[in-house]
Amino acid sequence: MNTTDRLIKLLIALAFAAASAALWWPVESRAERIKEVATVQGIRSNQLVGYGLVVGLDGTGDQTTQTPFTTQSLNAMLQQLGINVPSGTTMQPKNVAAVLVTATLPPFAQPGQAIDVNVSSLGNAKSLRGGTLIATPLKGADGQIYGLAQGNMIVGGAGASQGGSKVQVNHLSAGRIPAGATVERSVPTPWMQSTIAQLDIQADDFNTARDVANAINRAKGAGTAEALSGRTVAVKLPEQPGERVAFMADVENLPIQRAIPAAKVIINARTGSIVMNQAVTLGPCAVAHGALSVTINSTPVISQPNALSQGQTVVAEKADIKINSEPGSLIQMPAGTKLTDVVKALNSLGANPQDLLAILQAMKAAGALQAELEVI
């Protein structure tokens, strides 16, 4: 056997090995982490809100004649500072605006830490650009003060007006203050009060809950996690508080294979948007869809009386109603087990998104669409 024959046989053997590997080795799929499908119960953010004043505006503040609460707030603030405004004084400050301040208090936030705040106009201020927020207490749902906001605003817009003409870029009645609030009180969490942590699955899926529990048990030992329902998984925490942070960091980064979700079609009736996931399948069916239009034309008719008849001119309307029904041909749609097949079948109907809303509902009622319809 010469060298050429040996080389040919070697190449054939390598090609056969590569083909065998492609047939028997599983294709590598991207796994999601537990932190992307579940959250720890009790470890959540809290919404804060407050009412305050923005000062230092360049004549673009509230018109106090239409927003009396701005003047009342300004009087109350001046009284707190020891300044008494004589009764009967008409105040029309153009550089002050009443605003609503909102912020999100992250979990485990401690007193003294800074958080971002959003400031939105509450009255009819033309612009908050260049304004400064005066100290504003931020309260939670329980009415307690959890933060104090103050600082210079950042408004991502610009505008100018003169002689009835106006040019505006982006929105001028809302802004943001980075690190504009200081946390004054922390929110207690059940993190250190129990040896059991509960993971809340984002989607109601028993398969995902089981996969999360199995992944934790494989990494941390049997019996560490237990799936209680399609949305909750109980996890045993270490006895030592110092070990819990490292334990949960490992748990959150454990990979799991995301199961195929339930077949679902999301329909937005207001915009005509239709979104379906990869699990949607279509059974064989036949669809005929025609366009029905109703046109109503109204023409005024004037009835003029004869001369010297002492009659009155009467105006009436003549309505012309036309109903047009375009024929729709019967189209046979084959069964589709893949999302691409379903999309091709629906596109073959030639219907617009508004027509597809009615077609999909009819397919679901006829049993040809194997998916759950959800209207948002």
Rank of each mutant, 00 (worst) to 15 (best):
A135H: 11
G242I: 01
G164M: 10
V315H: 06
T313V: 13
S173H: 09
A286W: 06
T67A: 02
G230T: 06
E372Y: 07
A362V: 06
S273D: 15
R185P: 00
A22F: 12
T340V: 15
E239V: 14
G163P: 10
I8Y: 03
M333Q: 12
Q257D: 12
T136N: 02
V275N: 14
S127L: 05
P107I: 00
A263F: 09
T64A: 01
L105F: 05
L14M: 12
Q332G: 10
V54Q: 05
P305M: 11
Q92N: 15
S20Q: 05
Q110F: 01
K139I: 10
G367N: 07
A17V: 11
V96Q: 06
P137L: 03
V251G: 01
A98F: 03
P111A: 11
I266P: 00
Q144L: 11
L81F: 10
M363L: 15
D58L: 09
N347R: 14
V294S: 13
A269F: 00
S29T: 10
D5T: 13
T90W: 01
A351M: 12
G164K: 13
P261M: 08
V101H: 10
M153A: 02
V233H: 03
V49F: 03
T60G: 01
T182S: 14
N347P: 03
A179P: 02
V375N: 03
V96W: 06
G328K: 11
A141G: 09
A362Y: 02
R270Y: 07
I115D: 07
L53S: 10
I8K: 08
W191D: 01
N170M: 05
Q332S: 15
G180V: 08
L282H: 04
V375Y: 06
L357F: 03
P238A: 05
G50A: 10
A371N: 08
G350H: 01
I331H: 09
E252V: 00
G112Y: 04
V37G: 01
A366G: 05
G61T: 03
G140T: 06
M248E: 04
T132H: 12
L14P: 04
I196T: 15
I376M: 11
G59K: 11
N46G: 00
M192Q: 13
A97P: 09
S194Q: 15
K9Q: 10
W24G: 02
G230K: 10
P190A: 06
G221D: 08
N75M: 05
T337F: 04
L57P: 07
K364G: 04
A345F: 02
V49N: 05
